[in-house]
Design a protein around this nucleic acid. Structure first.
Lengths: 155, 155
DNA sequence: GATTAGATGTCAGGACTTTGACATACCCAC
DNA sequence: GTGGGTATGTCAAAGTCCTGACATCTAATC
């Protein structure tokens, strides 16, 4: 057994130090993705939260503020200002009033779809680099592992 | 071939929508990890950047402000305020002056090591949940994929 | 030795995000 | 119907982080 001068907490798996932990590598990959997306989207006049909102909204039209916040992993308040900005820019519309409940469904405008399509060209190039980086046979396994990790921490 | 009503950009791999993209699942897993760590560290009076700084510093004593910023994926300015806070709390020390260059090496104090060890107990429990979530035979492959993705976006 | 480039620490300003709080609206048991 | 629980939208305040900028220090180049 390991008899070095480590009276500390034993890590849950064999790793020489923090840099070998799953959490650290997850953070590192996410930081790289965030930086790449930030730079790519700057040319299109969009921030990452704005793009995420448009992308999710294109896949699931009619989502409410709270729905979008959960789907993009930010607070309702943050998504609220994002929606305001996109609405003022004419990229999406929300009914001023709604017959039942408080949730106002948001839908993309034509201009919103156009801007999203232009931005997707840049972002999908990044996604393609991610996909090429992993061995293509292992891509489904990677997606499954990410999903299981996320759900393991959410219960 | 796919003949649905999609005149948009074709995604780089088969996924019904955004939620199947690698980038999205990466973001989701990271958000779950961040939330879990935030909650776990609150009991120990540490923020995630503070804990990251202590953890990295324990693995590589004597790192400078810029070194720590790069290792924890924040700006030098953010790391500077983190170091100030930890220094004021007596968890690490930096020499006021240095014989050569501007970089002041930071080292943990005894109290810093004690606080880190206490916090590690909580954080390593989260890391253990991550490790259990993935099939243990695939853990090395997962770490390799995360590493390759991060490096693929950093060149 | 002077100069240029690169790296570091720090300050000021602004942008973004979160926490806390409150009012409104639905749903379900009773 | 009524009360409790839950979900939503929004406001205010605080915290966090980043971009831009500048001075300092080293090392390489001429």
């Amino acid at each position: 057994m390991d008899m070095r001068e480590t009276p500390g907490v034993t890590p849950p798996h064999p790793a020489p130090d923090v840099f070998g932990h799953v959490g650290y590598q997850l953070k590192r990959a996410h930081a790289a993705l965030r930086a790449a997306m930030d730079q790519a989207l700057r040319a299109h006049g969009l921030t990452v939260p704005q793009y995420s909102c448009l992308e999710v909204l294109a896949a699931r039209p009619g989502m409410s503020n709270a729905d979008l916040a959960r789907a993009t992993f930010v607070s309702r308040q943050s998504m609220n200002v994002v929606l305001r900005g996109l609405q003022d820019a004419g990229l999406l519309t929300r009914p001023a009033t709604v017959e039942t409940g408080r949730a106002r469904p948001a839908t993309l405008t034509g201009e919103g779809r156009r801007r999203l399509r232009a931005a997707q060209e840049a972002v999908y190039a990044i996604e393609a680099r991610l996909v090429r980086a992993v061995h293509e046979d292992r891509l489904p396994a990677l997606l499954a592992d990410l999903d299981r990790m996320a759900r393991a921490l959410s219960d």
